[in-house]
Amino acid sequence: MAIDFEVKDHIALITLNRPERMNAMDAEAYQDLSDAWTEVRDNPDIRVAVVTGAGDKAFSAGADLKSFLGSPTDLSDFWLTQQGQLLNRGIEMWKPVIAAVNGYCLGGGLTLMLATDLRFATPSATFALSEVRRGVLPGNGGTQRLIEQLPHAVAMEVLLVGDRFDAETALRWGLINRIVDHDVLLEAAFDAARRISENAPLAVQATKELALRSRDVDRATGLRLEESLLKLLRHSSDAIEGPRAFAEKRPPAFVGR
């Protein structure tokens, strides 16, 4: 399998598993990854996902261009907009996703990371969107999310020049949360995942959805949506359990209902 998938204690671990190709993704890997994201989205037992790459050299070098050369697609595929949904291409994922970046994070690997919520990287992590040097552009959200997450001039340099930058630069720009040693990378990611999974699942998902939708609506609409979801959550069993557990000085037992 090009993608390894496992679930434990409400946390899904997705591993891009083509280390011999720096975890570059061919058509099979993209389909497996799409299936994994669908499972995370639809499985109520999953509250958080962690995505990483196999080995110690790469998170992902993006699309495996050699596997796509000489494989033209029918133009009609362009309108199959819901086919093969990915985290960075169309799927609505309100469960938090954490990236554990272990090495090269290039092209589609970086656009995948840009679609995650928390990001941890090793000191050797290297980032780039160099598609313009190959005659194409950084798809799957590359031209969209980078300009949202970086100052305009910085994002345009990354997009138009295509140079690589290191983990310290990514941290300084705010693209990652923390730099951690390779041997504790997954530990750091899972620690954050566990802390999130202990919170009320519906409240976590509602908070993420509101935060992301706020980029596309005016402030009055965003505040109205916020108030609407808050009123809805007040009818959940978790909204009863939270205050009760606090009053009883015990950890809450949230069930996502």
Rank of each mutant, 00 (worst) to 15 (best):
A239F: 11
S237D: 04
T169S: 03
N17R: 11
D191Q: 15
D218K: 05
A58W: 04
L146C: 05
F190G: 12
R194S: 14
F5S: 07
R224W: 11
I46S: 03
E198H: 12
I11G: 05
L229N: 06
G222S: 00
V154P: 02
R224G: 05
I46W: 02
A2Q: 03
V50R: 06
I11V: 15
A206M: 03
I46D: 02
V180L: 01
E6T: 13
T126P: 01
G242C: 11
L65I: 12
K8D: 03
S228P: 05
L65W: 13
E241L: 06
L146D: 02
G141S: 04
G109Q: 01
G53F: 14
L233E: 04
A167Q: 00
C105I: 01
T38V: 12
R172Q: 09
V217L: 06
L202G: 05
I196Q: 09
R213C: 14
L87V: 02
F254C: 05
V161M: 14
G109D: 01
C105L: 03
N88D: 07
A155K: 06
R164I: 07
W79D: 15
Q144S: 14
A200S: 08
S67P: 11
L159A: 07
P123E: 13
P44S: 11
F68S: 04
I240S: 13
P252Q: 08
M156C: 09
T73G: 07
L185D: 03
F127M: 10
L65H: 06
R250Y: 06
P96Q: 11
R119P: 00
E92V: 11
E187C: 09
L86C: 07
R18A: 08
P138F: 03
F190T: 09
A203M: 03
D64H: 09
D9C: 06
G162I: 04
D32N: 12
L110K: 00
F68I: 10
S124T: 02
W79V: 15
Q205I: 00
G174I: 02
G55S: 09
E131Y: 08
L106A: 04
M93N: 02
Q205L: 01
M93L: 11
A12Q: 04
S71K: 11
R194D: 12
L233S: 05
I179Q: 00
L233V: 04
R250C: 02
L106S: 03
E248P: 04
L225F: 14
P72R: 10
D218E: 05
S228L: 13
L159D: 04
K57Q: 12
S197E: 10
R133Q: 10
L75G: 04
L146Q: 05
L233K: 07
H10N: 11
L69K: 11
D45H: 09
G174S: 03
L159Q: 10
A99T: 00
G135N: 10
K66R: 12
V97G: 12
E6F: 09
R145N: 01
L225H: 10
T111R: 01
K231G: 13
V40L: 14
L75N: 08
L69Q: 12
V40W: 05
N140E: 15
N43D: 15
A99N: 02
A220T: 02
K231S: 13
A200C: 03
V158G: 00
L186F: 06
R172M: 06
Q83Y: 08
S34C: 01
T116N: 11
N17S: 13
V154L: 14
D191W: 15
K95P: 10
